[in-house]
């Protein structure tokens, strides 16, 4: 939380909030430019994600290079890389572990390729969510999808950090309650069920509750009253 300017109502002036007319026009123009960029970013990330599955194995290197650039760009946009890297490490360990368990070490290389492709599918979506505002994405998607679907998609993207924080909080509190879910305890697959039971299950309940509240909030603000929606001009 940062402390912003005084909130005394008697000190309020219109110019504090809304820029001058010329500045306003510039802001709206910039918003439109950003919207075009966002459209391009959405198209680019979809193509890139699809390519991860479709591209031949020998061309995966090019995709890796492009995705590395996206990572650098997101990093410059102050996106947090640590959770993503942790997710990739966890996902790699599980997938490769399962391959070794089911097929032995013969198909290890195949497992690495599968993991790489999964990472390359996920990374462009993460880049999109990290570098574009959910409002802009919603605006672009509403051109292609019904408004309700656009809202669902963009709200889902917006609440991702909230979900991550909830998951962390629940994990920490269950560790403090003695759950066998510390990294060391999770080396034993018997304890994986405990992770599902005391972290994922409460998280799922929280998500259901959150989706219900957001739906109430949106409906209560006339979300389903009109089939056509306009958009806030300043992004």
């Amino acid at each position: 939380m940062i402390h912003l300017k005084s909130t005394k109502r008697d000190k309020y002036t219109l110019t504090n909030l809304v820029p001058e007319k010329s500045a306003l026009n510039n802001a709206i123009l910039r918003s439109k430019q950003k919207l075009i960029l966002c459209s391009a970013a959405i198209a680019f990330s979809i193509v890139l994600s699809m390519s991860a599955f479709l591209v031949l194995q020998q061309h995966l290197g090019y995709l890796l290079l492009i995705n590395a650039c996206l990572l650098v760009h997101a990093w410059f946009c102050q996106a947090k890389l640590a959770p993503l890297i942790k997710l990739f490490i966890f996902q790699s360990l599980v997938t490769i572990g399962l391959y070794v368990l089911l097929y032995g070490q013969d198909r290890l290389f195949e497992a690495v390729i599968v993991v790489t492709r999964i990472i390359l599918v996920m990374l462009p979506s993460w880049w999109l969510a990290s570098t574009q505002s959910s409002h802009q994405i919603s605006q672009v998607l509403s051109l292609l999808l019904p408004t309700k679907w656009a809202f669902v998609v963009t709200t889902s993207i917006k609440v991702l950090p909230f979900i991550g924080q909830e998951a962390r909080d629940i994990y920490h509190i269950q560790c403090l309650r003695g759950a066998r879910i510390t990294p060391k305890a999770l080396m034993n697959p018997i304890n994986w069920y405990e992770l599902v039971k005391c972290v994922l299950f409460p998280l799922l309940i929280q998500l259901l509750s959150l989706s219900k509240h957001i739906a109430h909030s949106a409906n209560q603000r006339h979300f389903d009253k009109s089939s056509t929606h306009t958009h806030w001009p300043l992004n």
Binding site: H135, S217, R221, S226
Partner: peptide, 27 residues
């Protein structure tokens, strides 16, 4: 759990968007 947008302007304007208020009239 009620907030659906990222900036305060867009959050307040959400209801107006749903009522199809023209963009410039929202300000």
């Amino acid at each position: 759990v009620q907030l659906v947008r990222e900036t305060i302007g867009a959050e307040v304007a959400f209801g107006l968007e749903n009522l199809s208020v023209p963009a410039l009239d929202m300000l």
